[in-house]
Design a protein around this nucleic acid. Structure first.
Lengths: 194, 194, 194, 194
DNA sequence: GAGTAACCGAGACGGTACGTCACGTCTTCTG
DNA sequence: CAGAAGACGTGACGTACCGTCTCGGTTACTC
């Protein structure tokens, strides 16, 4: 659909390589310097382009960062199996991969540092991701893999929450397979039918 | 110790009311505008003072914010009982009270936005808080209230983590007693001896 | 000569109406906003065309402005009579008509704002116009209408100069027939044979 | 009067040497590069200061330039004698000194390039200077040195106008004593009583 | 009547300057 | 010595314009 519109677009087309170069430079600099010390001028220089080209694509620094770090919207389709243990583990793993990078932390700083109204708009994305997780948990509940009296909203916050906690405490390093296994084990024991 | 020095300090003493006015203005503006859009000039104006007075007390904006939001360092002595269910609930409640305010979110932005070295220094505070939680959980494990094979570090992240998750998703509003009770119930089921 | 080349030019011919529309829009915007605040994008929009079409015709903004305001190069053939009083009056009148428009002032800004080398190139046009004036004055001197010891270069600057002065002082409004007559009267009294 | 107010001013006083350094750098760069190619960043660098310090003193680039080039408001008190020939010559000389510098031309570009409303405000300064000239001419007329039927407004434009003309034609070089003498001679012949 | 060359519009591109803002430091006067 | 006022340098932000370019599409002359 958007594709159809693009075909009819007039004017010089955007240089697609610039998009990639800008995003790559953004992530690099985010990891090297952190959010506040990353200037768009530096991003432009490293990407071999100009700040103008950046502002043509994103409205602000925080929007660029949010897109660069969390843009991969299609890849969150973690395989859904019939085994809730496997599913929860893979969701935790997915959250860990998303968040346990220095750039992710920097991106959160950018998003949360915005004025309230913009922030609310952006956080709907997080809300939607959360909704998908809850839906899946509900289906597992329907299948009887999860106890009927469990509030799946609370359960959902037990999946991403611990990862967030480690990231903010500065110890994302030890979020490894063992850590994930231990987490999943506790959570499953807490929700599986008795 | 610092108290002792203050007694013998020469010259005009600091106006103690300014401390409170500055902290109050900081929290207000943090909630109204977010971290980035809160300027120290605005804080000074609302507090009826000048930026000079602020910088005499705190080294930087992020330090002021960190102090204003998390300064209450003594009050975290949550009563320790013999009942781990009660203890975990009160720890979750404590985390929720600490974090489920708009200003807390803004403070995190300020701390995480700092350059890496400063951030590390400050996060030791969080680490220490975390250590106290883990110690308590270990004592409960020793008493047999928690299964012997549970990693208390992971368990600790199940206490503050979910709260963090709700805060960042923007929905700190529904972190109420029912939510906390549900959370504690799941976690306890997951860690209590079989 | 250029005309001859045009006849043999292949491809789609230029839309002659665009030339006029661009020039008209340029003058309008020059008068409304001044040189610096007139953007070529605005000119293009008002002329119902694009900046591309403008740059196909003129090399730069200042060149467009110079052409739009002073392009009428053929019309300066002020009738030369045997009466220097009439001639000087008509030259002053011509200068006034050329310069006493808001757009003329803006055009001067454009030309003088150019870097030195470009400016020199363009000012030869002014020099040539000046030369024609001086030649005419010299002929009047030869005929005895002007005192033999008058430096016609200085006299020439007494014709356009006062008009320029009024324009820059912002009071081009009162450069009317009475003003011109008074000016010519003084100058003639100063140069006619005693 | 303004002096009195200054005495009561609180805060760190402005560094007066910066004013001079900025003005000097402005004039230098104006002569080297012209108005458009002179950036405030370059001015700041050469003056050993920052653009912020410049904007604290002047509202815009054109205002800085206008002040730097034409600020010397007190020095225009050309000695008034009883001899109108001497006075006119000295006024022409004064105009020539003011205008026949590369920086003056650049300053005119800046002032005239502004949007109309700002320009009008500034040109009142020129109008006032003009008024002083006319007043003096009127006094000479009262003394009988100038013919009673001469319009002194037109006469005034015969003093600065020719200088302007030479400057814009690019030939300010030959505005020397001989040129001035010749100009004054013609003008005087045109206005002195018969 | 098919080719071709130059036009047209839209709009992206690099570059550069502008003017604003905040931070954290400093300098001065006043209490 | 604290406080208020306000200057200072640094450095980023986001906007605007210039002049160039690339694209799809159009129009006229030429073969």
């Amino acid at each position: 659909m958007e594709q159809a519109l693009k075909i009819e677009r007039a004017g010089r087309p955007r240089d697609a390589r610039l998009d990639d170069a800008i995003v790559a430079a953004t992530i690099e600099l985010l990891e090297e310097r952190g959010y506040n010390d990353m200037s768009l001028a530096a991003v432009a220089e490293r990407a071999g382009t100009s700040t103008t080209a950046i502002y043509r694509r994103w409205k602000s620094k925080s929007e660029l960062v949010a897109h660069a770090v969390f843009r991969t919207e299609g890849d969150d389709v973690v395989a859904e199996t019939d085994n809730i243990a496997v599913d929860i583990a893979s969701m935790v793993r997915w959250a860990a991969e998303k968040l346990a990078r220095p750039a992710a932390l920097a991106a959160v700083v950018g998003i949360l540092g915005e004025s309230r109204s913009e922030r609310v708009a952006r956080s709907t994305a997080a809300a939607m991701a959360s909704k998908r997780v809850i839906d899946r948990l509900n289906r597992a509940k329907d299948r009887g893999e999860i106890r009927a009296d469990v509030d799946t909203r609370v359960l959902a916050s037990l999946i991403a929450g611990p990862v967030l906690n480690e990231v903010f405490a500065g110890g994302a390093a030890h979020v490894n397979e063992r850590w994930i296994a231990e987490l999943v084990s506790i959570v499953l024991d807490g929700v599986r039918p008795r």
